[in-house]
């Protein structure tokens, strides 16, 4: 009877949940990015040799550093917002403002970090 209930990733991502849903998706990407980074990092240190050197060269790439810093910083700030809202449910009425504050904190810090990474990478 009927179509299955499964919701594909593509369908889920197309749901128009606006700002809060975007932070949820970015939070997951950040968490996944960090998990993959740490896992490969640990494995590379065990493997050593050419494979280890190759993996290290990825970490040292400035594009990768921009990505991983995004993962860490966004995951941390967004996680802090959610923790505060969970601890103080009354604040949940102001979730929209909380997201604006989150972006207001994230963008300058991340922008500065990207500037420093790029400046360093391009031999500044």
């Amino acid at each position: 009877m009927g179509l299955k209930r499964n919701v594909s990733l593509a369908t889920a991502l197309r749901y128009k949940g606006q700002g809060p849903f975007l932070t949820y998706i970015l939070h997951r990407i950040g968490g996944l990015g960090m998990a993959v980074f740490i896992t490969i990092h640990i494995l590379a240190s065990f493997v050593g040799g050419k494979a280890g050197v190759f993996v290290n060269s990825i970490y040292e790439n400035w594009l990768f550093q921009i990505f991983i810093f995004f993962c860490v910083l966004f995951h941390a700030i967004n996680g802090l917002r959610i923790t505060l809202l969970d601890l103080f449910p009354k604040l949940l009425e102001h979730s929209r403002e909380a997201i604006w504050i989150e972006w207001a904190v994230f963008l300058p810090v991340y922008g500065l970090a990207v500037f420093v990474i790029v400046h360093t990478a391009l031999g500044g």
Binding site: G17, F21, Y24, I82, L85, D86, L87, P89, L92, S95
Partner: peptide, 26 residues
């Protein structure tokens, strides 16, 4: 519940659902 807020934004009765769930968590 991962405090996504999709529920609150979808509610046609404008119930603060995430807040209610937050109160239940506490």
């Amino acid at each position: 519940c991962h405090t996504v807020f999709n529920c609150t934004m979808a509610c046609p009765r404008e119930i603060q659902i995430t807040k209610a769930i937050g109160e239940l968590k506490m």
